[in-house]
């Protein structure tokens, strides 16, 4: 552990900001972190409040009267929520792996200055960034041509590549990989595929971690694909489930007039605000655990090692 810390900190150990600046920076970050955490605390607090206590005393940072009401709902809907959690996890992992491969390979190809089709492929990546065929025709292609309707692939494939990520990746490769490294490998007779898989990828862990993190978050946060392509609610992801719970209440309220008397009955069956917030907590929690996993790959110094070695 001690050696690793020394390695990680690298230069800082003999080249640091002074103590006062360090304390100041820490203070700033503590404030920032609090600003980011407090709303989550409020979500947690609502999830533990009883409906009556919110009605009578309003919202609080910490619940006034503790109530497990919301979590009984979660437990009661356990099967549904576990399944949604499973879908989210599967989609996130599979999508991230696939997406990282598709993104980094394209990013690398675009970063090679001498590649003949570079200009052409740049347009292939650029055009979709500004133009798209719209929801209706994408839906048609994905369901009719590709048969993705009601399949887990409809949650994975359409989000695997984003031009934004490809361009970030290309920029990363361009600015962090020394040309000499690839040239020397080419002179050694290594094929481009070999160079990419056994030289570039291993030294690009920070890039992979970044793209992986972006993809992972995008998949975890996505609800729109579920809403559009999944008819069988058993295949809903957690975020989609929450979105559906939240939007149902809203939709009922907005269409009260057209439902006539059924409205009151229907509203009564909707999960309470605390239950909805409990689901929101379920979404945030896994992420708090996932981030450190990616974080450990943001380590400096790997590039030098490879060049020197």
């Amino acid at each position: 552990m001690a050696t690793r810390t020394a390695y990680e900190t690298g230069l800082e150990k003999f080249n640091r900001t002074n103590k006062f600046v360090n304390i100041l920076f820490n203070l700033i970050f503590i404030i920032l972190a609090l600003i980011c955490v407090i709303p989550v605390v409020v979500v947690l607090s609502i999830s533990f409040s009883s409906e009556a206590s919110i009605r009578e005393t309003g919202y609080h940072l910490l619940p006034v009267a503790l109530s497990g009401e919301a979590y009984t709902y979660i437990v009661k809907q356990g099967a549904m929520i576990l399944r949604a959690l499973g879908v989210s996890a599967l989609v996130t992992v599979a999508g991230t792996v696939l997406g990282v491969f598709l993104t980094t390979s394209m990013g690398y190809v675009l970063s090679r200055p001498a590649y003949k089709l570079k200009g052409f492929l740049t347009w292939v990546v650029f055009i979709p960034m500004v133009f798209n065929g719209g929801l209706v025709s994408s839906y048609f292609i994905n369901t009719n041509l590709l048969g993705l309707k009601d399949s887990i692939w409809s949650l994975i494939l359409p989000l695997a590549v984003s031009s934004f990520n490809v361009i970030i990746c290309k920029t990363f490769f361009k600015s962090t990989i020394p040309d000499g490294l690839i040239e020397s490998a080419e002179i050694d007779g290594a094929s481009q595929l070999r160079i990419f898989f056994s030289i570039i990828l291993p030294i690009s862990l920070p890039v992979i971690a970044t793209i992986g993190l972006f993809l992972c978050f995008a998949y975890w946060n996505d609800w729109f694909q579920s809403m559009l392509y999944i008819d069988n609610q058993n295949l809903y992801s957690l975020q989609a489930l929450l979105n559906s719970l939240m939007s149902n209440v809203d939709a009922l309220a907005k269409n009260a007039a057209s439902m006539g008397v059924s409205y009151a009955v229907l509203v009564a069956t909707m999960p309470k605000e605390s239950a909805r917030m409990a689901v929101a907590i379920l979404i945030v929690l896994p992420v708090a655990f996932a981030y450190p996993f990616f974080q450990k790959y943001f380590i400096s110094g790997l590039t030098i090692g490879a060049v020197k070695g």
């Binding site: 929801l135 209706v136 839906y139 048609f140 369901t143 009719n144 809403m227 559009l228 609610q233 979105n243 559906s244 939240m246 939007s247 149902n248 209440v249 809203d250 939709a251 009922l252 269409n255 057209s258």
Partner: peptide, 27 residues
Amino acid sequence: SWGEWDTKINTIVNTGEPFDIMFTNSG
């Protein structure tokens, strides 16, 4: 589901996805 009906039904109708009966309303 209530909140998704709008988008979902519009997409299904617009893309000509097969269905036989459909709930609809004045909107």
